[in-house]
Amino acid sequence: MTKTSMTVNGKAVSAETEGRTLLSAYLREGLGLTGTHIGCDTSQCGACVVHVDGKAVKSCSVFAQDVEGADVTTIEGMANADGSLGTIQQAFQDHHGLQCGFCTPGMVMSSAALLAENPTPTEAEVRHYLEGNICRCTGYHNIVKAVMAASGQAVPAE
């Protein structure tokens, strides 16, 4: 076991890891940050997306030791400083962009990465960008709506 340190949600943290410990396991088990979810074992579902040095990454496909010293943001770090929902989180609530909530952390993290790259994406761009995040509840309608709304664009009335 090795002590692995990084910055998560603005705080310096460390936890014991094996070489094979995934970043997702490091966050969930090492740090108790259970907002990052594991929905598959083939890096397909995107429930575990976090930001590593500003880039959206599936945390199940990265070894914790490989991102030693990185600056990581998880869903737990997305609210405003006063604890209120951040813009994207608020848009997901306003537009009913989540149901069971399991894919939601990954959806929010991917959406945040999209809007950082492309502040006013088209509907098609949103759908294409979110291909790596599977949701079984919403039929994606309200997720796409929420992301469009979070970018300040008009959304379909229903």
């Binding site: 259970t34 907002g35 869903i75 737990e76 997901f92 306003d94 929010v108």
Partner: peptide, 19 residues
């Protein structure tokens, strides 16, 4: 009405069995 449960799901505070 907007969903009250969304707040915990959107902030990583949901409590699923594996949590």
């Amino acid at each position: 009405t907007k969903r009250r449960e969304d707040i915990r799901f959107l902030t990583g505070k949901g409590r699923y069995t594996d949590d």
